[in-house]
Simulated assay, not measured.
Amino acid sequence: MNMLLVESLMMIIASLVPNYLMGIITGAGLQALMILGGGYFRLPKDLPKLFWRYPIYYIDFQRFAYHGLFKNEFLGLRLQTETGWIIITGEEILRDELQVEMGHSKWIDLLVLMVMGVVCRLVFLLVVKMSERAKHVVKAVIMRVSPKESHQVVATYPSSTPSHTPSAIIRFLNI
């Protein structure tokens, strides 16, 4: 689902930028921003609050992918010694060490990623449709502002072999 979401975002970016190099640069920058703000490199409570925590962390799709992955791996896990003493459980690792939100299951994280993917595909459809309409509107405005008059150049030659003198060329070009 995360890969589908990334592909959807790249499709939106590709439809907005003028060439593929700008699309790659913009897409890589957006992906880096999402990875950095997703809570993988820095724990959520350690993220700076002004930019990274409040706008980025809460809208970041990578956060849901990380949390779903962590919940899938650690829920139900019990780390024990050889004598059978439980040292730590997976829930404690998730809550205390990784600071994963435990209020919902991994399936909710997957559902959020699916909804984000569908929304991004719909945004891509809207961008493509709006750009098609914008091209027609711009073309119509340009044609009304400066209509190009078509000129026909008709040259008649007195003989079967045309003369290549400068005056014949000037007459041919209608200059």
Rank of each mutant, 00 (worst) to 15 (best):
residue 15 S to Q: 10
residue 20 Y to R: 14
residue 20 Y to S: 13
residue 21 L to D: 12
residue 26 T to V: 07
residue 27 G to S: 05
residue 28 A to Q: 08
residue 29 G to K: 07
residue 29 G to A: 04
residue 30 L to A: 14
residue 30 L to Y: 15
residue 32 A to W: 05
residue 34 M to P: 00
residue 35 I to T: 04
residue 36 L to R: 03
residue 39 G to F: 05
residue 40 Y to V: 09
residue 41 F to R: 02
residue 44 P to R: 03
residue 45 K to N: 14
residue 49 K to E: 10
residue 54 Y to K: 05
residue 57 Y to D: 05
residue 58 Y to E: 07
residue 58 Y to L: 04
residue 66 Y to C: 00
residue 68 G to L: 00
residue 76 G to E: 04
residue 78 R to F: 09
residue 81 T to N: 08
residue 83 T to M: 05
residue 84 G to Q: 07
residue 84 G to R: 11
residue 85 W to H: 15
residue 89 T to A: 11
residue 91 E to T: 10
residue 93 I to R: 06
residue 94 L to W: 10
residue 95 R to C: 12
residue 99 Q to K: 01
residue 106 K to I: 03
residue 109 D to I: 00
residue 109 D to N: 08
residue 110 L to A: 14
residue 110 L to G: 12
residue 111 L to Q: 12
residue 112 V to P: 08
residue 113 L to Q: 06
residue 115 V to E: 06
residue 120 C to A: 14
residue 122 L to T: 09
residue 123 V to C: 03
residue 124 F to A: 14
residue 127 V to W: 02
residue 127 V to S: 00
residue 127 V to I: 06
residue 127 V to G: 00
residue 135 K to D: 12
residue 136 H to M: 07
residue 137 V to Y: 11
residue 139 K to S: 15
residue 142 I to G: 15
residue 143 M to S: 15
residue 146 S to F: 10
residue 147 P to C: 04
residue 150 S to H: 15
residue 152 Q to G: 00
residue 156 T to A: 01
residue 156 T to C: 04
residue 158 P to N: 09
residue 159 S to V: 10
residue 159 S to L: 11
residue 160 S to L: 03
residue 161 T to M: 02
residue 164 H to T: 01
residue 164 H to D: 08
residue 164 H to M: 15
residue 167 S to Y: 09
residue 168 A to Q: 04
residue 170 I to F: 02
residue 171 R to I: 06
residue 171 R to S: 13
residue 171 R to W: 08
residue 172 F to P: 00
residue 172 F to H: 12
residue 175 I to W: 09
